[in-house]
């Protein structure tokens, strides 16, 4: 066996060891991050006595579905899940399309008023949302958008749009100039080239942004609460608030079960798009 081959093998072993070390760290981080989530799910499966018990148990001793049943049977669960899905999908779809257009304009064109628009987009996000509740309500009431899902969609767009424009712009700027130039030299037309070259390159950014927009609007509570009065028209976070908004007994188990159910659609959405993020690395390298 030659010395060179031995050295190669030693380097490979070192590399494997290092990777194993990183993996171990990743698992530790995973455990620490996920513990609160685990605690929520575990509590949802525990019996009432076990939940208030003085010594916490790591695993439910007598796992029960009673809390999940109570949550699902609570009035308006399915209606409100449906409402949330409608609000979120419309908000995300419309926002991402509009934001992408604006982001291209900001990142790739120079024009008068560009700076003003950037300042506006950033400035809007600096406004404390609590301050906007009443002025926004008054406007929406004027357009008969109170107690309507469309009013909530419009409201969500006001904070999802600036954010999305802002982040997508960052992703578009991050694309190395050489790639675009290469595409142009290849003879593509102006915007056609953009769409062909930009879209695949920006895909991870689009996905990350839409995941964010999805989660942001799925989890929003304050505006939905103020704008929607009718329980049949509310979103699922508002539905959840009825667990702890009573002056009476708070059913911790059912609250945790309801919370767990509320989180599921986000996880599903992510699973649907995670390939784009998880394999974004390679996608970025292949670059058409």
């Amino acid at each position: 066996m030659s010395a060179a081959a031995g050295a190669v093998r030693a380097r490979r072993r070192r590399k494997r060891l290092r990777r194993a070390g990183w993996n171990a760290i990743a698992l530790a981080v995973f455990a620490a991050m996920v513990f609160p989530v685990y605690w929520m799910v575990a509590t949802a499966f525990k019996s009432d006595d076990e939940i208030v018990g003085l010594t916490p148990t790591w695993l439910p001793e007598h796992p029960t579905l009673a809390h999940f049943r109570a949550a699902v049977e609570k009035p308006f669960f399915w209606t409100d899940v449906k409402n949330s899905l409608i609000v979120v999908s419309v908000t995300v779809a419309v926002s991402i399309v509009l934001a992408f257009l604006a982001a291209v304009a900001l990142a790739k064109y120079r024009f008068t008023g560009r700076k003003l628009f950037v300042v506006l987009v950033i400035g809007i996000q600096m406004l404390p949302q609590t301050a906007l509740i009443i002025p926004l309500y008054v406007v929406l009431a004027r357009y008969r958008q109170v107690n309507a899902l469309s009013g909530v969609v419009l409201t969500y767009m006001t904070f999802v749009l600036p954010f999305s424009v802002w982040t997508l712009r960052g992703f578009i700027i991050g694309i190395p100039k050489e790639l675009e130039e290469a595409a142009m030299v290849d003879g593509s037309t102006r915007l056609g080239a953009f769409v062909k070259i930009l879209l695949p390159l920006v895909a991870p950014g689009l996905v990350a942004t839409s995941v964010f927009a999805f989660i942001q609007s799925w989890n929003e509570y304050i505006f939905a609460r103020v704008l929607l009065n009718d329980q049949a028209k509310q979103t699922v976070t508002v539905w959840l608030s009825y667990f702890y908004g009573t002056s009476r007994h708070i059913d911790w188990g059912a609250l945790m079960a309801g919370s767990t159910l509320t989180a599921i659609p986000v996880v599903i959405f992510f699973l649907l798009v995670q390939r784009r993020i998880a394999f974004g690395l390679t996608a970025g390298a292949v670059r058409g």
Partner: peptide, 20 residues
Amino acid sequence: QYQNWGDHLQKLDAALAGGT
């Protein structure tokens, strides 16, 4: 329409302002 103790005054204020 059922409300929560935690934020019903905030809702009432908004509704009074919006005339609803």
